[in-house]
Design a protein around this nucleic acid. Sequence first.
DNA 1: CGTGAGATCGCCT
DNA 2: GGCGATCTCACGT
Length: 189
Amino acid sequence: MDLAPRLLGAVLTHETDEGRVAVRLAEVEAYGGVGEDPGSHAYRGMTRRNGVMFGEPGHLYAYFTYGMHVCLNLVTGHPGAASAVLLRGGTVVEGLELARSRRPGASDRDLARGPARLGLALGVPLSADGDDLLAAPYSLWLPSAPPVSARGPRTGVSGAGGGADFAWRFWLPDDPGVSAYRRHRRAVG
DNA sequence: CGTGAGATCGCCT
DNA sequence: GGCGATCTCACGT
């Protein structure tokens, strides 16, 4: 969770046959390990889906949700810790044409603004689960100085013991790549 | 611009 | 069998 705000301003690049797209991260959320974070996929231990979370840091944890969307996380903890950072949004800084072709109809601002959209713009499929994000065809550039960041409760996580109270969402204030805050549909209160 | 509902299926209980 | 780390579109302001 200490690492999460350091990813703000970082640039994640993915290269395919079609070309290269890079996104500058503007919004992330941290998720913790077994028994410590009720909002985390790792809360109840290792399962078929979340196995990558328990592995090496720097790898990609990609999962399928809501019957139609893929979300991307960077594993941040040591093996077994099962902590990860959900990449929630950013702006395309390279490969704009390619990103546009992958998201027909979307405005430039919306290309990678949102967890599922970000993966679509980068062209990272569910099958990339487990990939090393620090090696080709990916690259991750981190800014030398930690950026000024804002923090608040996580989006999309339900209340009632679901970990909604954890203020583990971090973003770059006023950055256009920050997704619209939407509380969970079933959030209480 | 904000709210709300539907889509759609794998995962876990 | 219920629900989700979401997105898009429709509609009211």
